[in-house]
Amino acid sequence: MKFLVPLLMVALLVSNGANVRAQSTTNRLTVQEPAEPSGNVVRDPLGKACLDVEAAARPQSSNHDMLDHVVSIKNNCLRPIKVKLCYYKSESCKQFDVQAYKRVDTILGAMRGVSFFRYSVFQK
């Protein structure tokens, strides 16, 4: 949610007064629930989870019926973390490294008319 708030604020600042009301009631992003539990969680020395994960469904600009399933992962720890991001109970996955104190935004997939999706994050 922390990453999506600046996007919404920019949209509101760019629009003029008449459109502000319309944009606040017709949000283009559909924020998702947290990732499904998936075992190991990498933690910092104080026991706090290293990764902040947020996800949203976003309509494609060329076809509003197609929704990109966007996942943003931010590493708040000193070491890189290997991440495997999957649709829940699926073999449809992406693997990547999130470097220390960096953020990775990725599109897990795209589906026509599917604005809610479940996903799992495996980390080591």
Rank of each mutant, 00 (worst) to 15 (best):
G109Q: 04
S90I: 08
H69F: 00
V104K: 10
E54F: 11
D68S: 15
D68R: 09
V114D: 10
L78F: 09
F96L: 07
S115A: 15
P6W: 12
F116Y: 14
K84S: 01
V104W: 00
V14P: 03
V53N: 00
Q32W: 07
A55L: 07
I73T: 01
V42H: 00
A100Y: 10
V104A: 02
R43L: 08
M66N: 04
H69R: 08
K94A: 05
F122N: 02
R43M: 11
V70E: 09
N76R: 09
F122E: 07
T26I: 02
I73L: 14
V53A: 02
K74P: 03
L67P: 01
H64R: 10
Q123T: 04
E36R: 06
K48A: 10
L29N: 11
S92I: 08
V70T: 04
V42R: 09
P37M: 09
H64D: 10
S62N: 13
P37L: 08
D65T: 15
R28P: 02
V41G: 05
L67Q: 13
L85N: 00
M9N: 14
V70L: 10
V5S: 12
L85E: 03
A18K: 14
A55M: 07
G47K: 05
Q60D: 08
L12G: 15
Q23Y: 14
L8A: 15
F3R: 06
A57N: 03
Q60T: 12
V114T: 05
Y119T: 02
T106Q: 04
K48H: 03
D105T: 13
L12T: 09
R103L: 06
K89Y: 12
D44L: 04
Q32L: 13
V98F: 02
N27P: 01
R79W: 07
Y87C: 00
L12D: 15
A100G: 07
G109E: 01
K48N: 14
M9Y: 15
P45D: 05
G47Q: 01
P34H: 03
R79T: 10
S92Y: 08
M66Q: 04
S120G: 10
R43A: 06
